[in-house]
Every structure is written in C-alpha cells, then in structure tokens.
C-alpha cells in the first residue's frame, strides 16, 4: 500500500511533466503561427509566378527545356520531408509509412533519397536507403537560401540525367488536427499541369511584347517554378509538424491533468482511511479504559 508521501511525490512529478508539455504546446503554437505567416507571405509570389509561367508556356507550341524532358522512369529520386524532432504524435511515423509505400510501389527502379528533417534522415539511414544528400535543421524555420540550394541540386541531377524523375513526399497542412500525406511529382515539370487551373483566362491571351524570346524566358521561369514548389512543400511540412506537436502536447497536458486528479483522489482516500483508523483506535481504546 503506497503511503501518503509516495502519492505526494508522484503527483509532484506528474505536475512537472505537465508544466513541460504545456510549455512545449505554447512554443509549438507560436512556431505554427510563424510558419503559417511565412506560407501566407509566399503565396502572392507563387500565384503571380504561376500566371506568368502559364501564359509563357501556352504561347510555345512545343516547349523544350531540360526540366520538361520526359524519360522512362528508371532512376527515381524522392525528397522526403519529415520533422526535425519527435514528440509530435504520429507525425513522423505517418509520413515515413507513406514514404515506404511509395518506395514499395517503385520497386525495381533505382531509388535515391534526399531527406529533409532529422527524424527522416535517421530512420531512412538506419533502413539502409541510398541517401545522396541530406538537409537537417532546415524545416523549423524555412530559409529561402535553403530552398534554392535544394532546388538547384535536384534540377542539376535531373538535367544531367542522373535521375529520371523527382518526387516530393511531405505532409500538407490541412487543419491543426490533421495533415494530408502528399506525394507530388516535382520533375519533369508537366506543362499540362501548369496550363490547367487558369483562373484568369483573359491575360493568357494578351499579345505581349517580349523583351527576350519566349524560350529564354521559359529557361528562367522554370527554375523559379521548381523553387516555389519546393518552398511550398517545406512550408507546409513545417506548419504540419508544429501543428502535430501542438496537438500532441495539448493531449499530453490534458492526460497529465487526469492522472493528477486520479492520484489526488486515491491520496485523499488513503489519508481518510488513516484518520478513520486512528479515530477507531482512540474510541476503542477509550471504551476499554472507561
């Protein structure tokens, strides 16, 4: 039977844990807000870029560019975006499970992986995959310089024919409670996908004066497009990670509260039992002496 002191100790320790989880929840909430703001700030550029690229690409009958070149997919490269840290519920597990599904579906092809985020790097390295590069500590705060570095690397690998396609596997931020596990084809760029979803058809048919040729412009636009896709994936994944951690820490805090309540109840019962026992002893002792 645990004594009163044991209960007090146990409650104190749970309270300490609860304080930590609560603090982590607030930190995650602040980071989530920052990640969402960054995602929001990046949106106008992505939107305008898409519009310019769409109108340029639709003007070229047969667009040719190394980043558009379609080859049989023999060598596949996957960018896997996980979290930088744990304590985010099933965030990393889910993403890695989705990545594994993708790897199984591409069995027989030569697979190489670039992990973004420490958790994925550790897990994939342990599983013995071919990691051709790795980026860690880049997702808690997404810097554009990193986005550019990664985009340049995969674009070069693709243009040089070292890989035949590039996919991005990441968690897309939906709501604080849920994320979409997404697999997107980054390269080759699909002109059809760029052309569709044109919300402003009017500007696509304007006859522009071109300072440079359409091909030159395309050559400059496509790398920017790849960058904006990578940036989006990184920002989404970052927001999703912070959201998952916030939710996990929230429920941890609530659970700790429940544990404290149960323990306090037991403690009070034990205390009451001790008091009752003492009273009985005094009463029975008194009755014998009278």
């Amino acid at each position: 039977m645990p004594t009163l002191l044991d209960f007090r100790r146990h409650i104190r320790s749970v309270k300490n844990t609860q304080q930590i989880t609560r603090a982590m929840k607030f930190v995650a909430a602040a980071r989530l807000r920052r990640a969402q703001e960054a995602a929001l700030a990046a949106r106008p550029y992505a939107k305008e870029l898409m519009r310019v690229l769409r109108s340029t690409i639709s003007r070229i009958a047969e667009p040719h560019h190394p980043l558009l070149a379609r080859r049989p997919e023999e060598k596949v490269l996957a960018l896997v975006l996980t979290g930088e840290r744990g304590l985010a519920g099933a965030f990393n597990t889910n993403l890695l499970r989705r990545a594994n599904e993708f790897f199984r579906a591409n069995k027989g092809r030569e697979l190489s992986i670039i992990p973004l985020g420490k958790k994925g790097r550790d897990a994939l390295r342990k599983a013995g995959f071919n990691l051709i590069a790795e980026y860690i500590n880049v997702l808690s705060r997404v810097e554009f310089a990193t986005v550019r570095e990664i985009s340049n690397l995969v674009s070069d690998l693709y243009s040089q024919g070292q890989v035949d396609s590039v996919y991005v596997i990441f968690s897309e931020f939906k709501t604080v409670m849920s994320a979409n596990l997404t697999v997107e084809k980054l390269l080759p760029v699909d002109p059809a996908r760029v052309r569709e979803g044109s919300e402003e058809p009017s500007s696509a048919h304007v006859d522009y004066i071109y300072e440079q040729t359409e091909e030159q412009l395309l050559d400059r636009l496509l790398p920017r497009y790849v960058e904006s896709q990578v940036q989006r994936a990184m920002l989404e994944s970052s927001a999703a990670e912070h959201a998952a951690r916030m939710t996990a820490m929230e429920s941890a805090t609530t659970n700790a509260g429940d544990v404290i309540e149960t323990l306090t109840l037991h403690m009070n019962k034990v205390r009451q039992a001790a008091i009752t026992k003492e009273i009985i002893e005094i009463v029975s002792g008194a009755s014998t002496t009278v």
């Binding site: 310019v52 109108s55 340029t56 304007v206 006859d207 522009y208 004066i209 071109y210 300072e211 440079q212 030159q216 412009l217 400059r220």
Partner: peptide, 19 residues
C-alpha cells in the same frame, strides 16, 4: 531595371514581359 536596359512605364503601356 530590365535585363536589356531600363524601361519607363506609364499607364496604358502595351502588354510586355521582360526579365
């Protein structure tokens, strides 16, 4: 600052695309 030189734009300019 266009890639091929500076461009002055006034309202009503003809549609133009430049690096």
């Amino acid at each position: 600052p266009g890639a091929n030189g500076y461009l002055g734009i006034l309202p009503g300019h003809a549609p133009l695309m430049t690096e």
